[in-house]
């Protein structure tokens, strides 16, 4: 049995189309990432899977339970951490955790082993009101609350948004540990670099699925040559690279521009082209593509169609 089976899901809010026919399957025990920018439809999909929203069309099931008919069954085995911090700010850390344990008919001590690694970090502040915690601590508390009833499947909606880099790294380590316990995890994130930490990912854009595969396979499917190009004038550089006749695409990537070309370039050729355009401090380096490059590539292809 699959952890989640999603078949041709459509969802619109009034005029806005959030999901336009999504189909995919999530295997039991994997970390499955929903990767895409804001507005890709990640939250809508998670809410449909957690039985919070009805799809307009299509079916979805969690461990064989239909999200519409068997919603009660799903609510017993699912853990959910919404995108917005939504614990009780006027209750303390400890009170929040106890409350969520008891509404699922369990106790904190019963499943303490599951949350031990996470909760130990915030335990010194257990008397503090949840509203006064820092962003990273809030997120750890929310995860603890979502885990306290030992769910079979865990839904995390952008858990690392607005969290510092160190906490993000810690958070993913925690998720890896949970995977070892056998919990299936469906996590959404707008950060492409987190995609590589998932077992499989679904790349989403404007309610459409670009690809579903392991990060390695997605990168393997990349069909262009990729270069990181640098110069003093980043903005002008993008413009000029886009006018270069061998360019497929050029996107800013930090301080550099990722240039995709159909065929291998001779570095001199590009150097010459850029010098003629008056660029200084030019550096060109051949690089391996990352998920973000693949995402941009798939997105461009979809737009061309």
């Amino acid at each position: 049995m699959k952890a989640a089976e999603i078949h041709n899901i459509h969802k619109s809010y009034d005029e806005v189309k959030a999901l336009g026919g999504i189909s995919m399957q999530v295997e039991k025990g994997e970390i499955f990432g929903l990767i895409g920018p804001d507005g890709a439809g990640k939250t809508s999909l998670i809410r449909i899977l957690t039985t919070l929203l009805y799809p307009d069309q299509g079916q979805a099931s969690i461990f064989g339970m239909d999200t519409i008919r068997d919603f009660k069954g799903i609510r017993k085995i699912a853990g959910y951490m919404p995108g917005r911090f939504s614990l009780y700010q006027d209750l303390s850390v400890e009170e929040n955790l106890n409350f969520y344990a008891s509404i699922f008919g369990t106790t904190v001590s019963e499943n303490y082993h599951l949350i031990k690694d996470i909760y130990q970090q915030i335990e010194p502040f257990k008397k503090r009101l949840a509203g006064r915690l820092s962003g990273g601590m809030k997120q750890k508390l929310a995860l603890s609350c979502a885990l306290i009833h030992k769910p079979d499947i865990l839904f995390l909606d952008e858990p690392t948004t607005g969290v510092d880099a160190v906490s993000r790294k810690e958070f993913w380590e925690i998720l890896k540990n949970l995977e070892e316990v056998g919990i299936t995890i469906i996590v959404s994130t707008p950060y492409m670099d987190e995609a590589e930490l998932c077992d499989r990912v679904a790349l989403m854009q404007e309610g459409q699925l670009l690809d579903v595969d392991t990060p390695a396979n997605i990168i393997g499917k990349y069909d262009h040559e990729l270069y990181a190009v640098e110069s003093r004038e980043l903005h002008q550089l993008i413009k000029d690279l886009r006018s270069f006749d061998k360019t497929v695409s050029a996107f800013p990537f930090g301080d550099t521009v990722h240039l995709a070309t159909q065929e291998k370039l001779r570095r001199k050729e590009l150097q010459k082209f850029l010098e003629e355009k008056g660029h200084e401090g030019i550096a060109v380096q051949s690089i391996e593509p990352g998920i973000e490059d693949c995402f941009m590539n798939l997105m461009r292809k979809q737009n061309d169609e």
């Binding site: 957690t50 039985t51 919070l52 009660k72 609510r75 017993k76 699912a78 959910y80 919404p82 917005r84 911090f85 939504s86 614990l87 009780y88 700010q89 969520y100 509404i103 699922f104 008919g105 609350c145």
Partner: peptide, 13 residues
């Protein structure tokens, strides 16, 4: 308003 209803709904309550 605070979104806690989401958590309550996704529980067996």
């Amino acid at each position: 308003e605070l979104g806690t209803m989401e958590n309550l709904l996704v529980s067996p309550l």
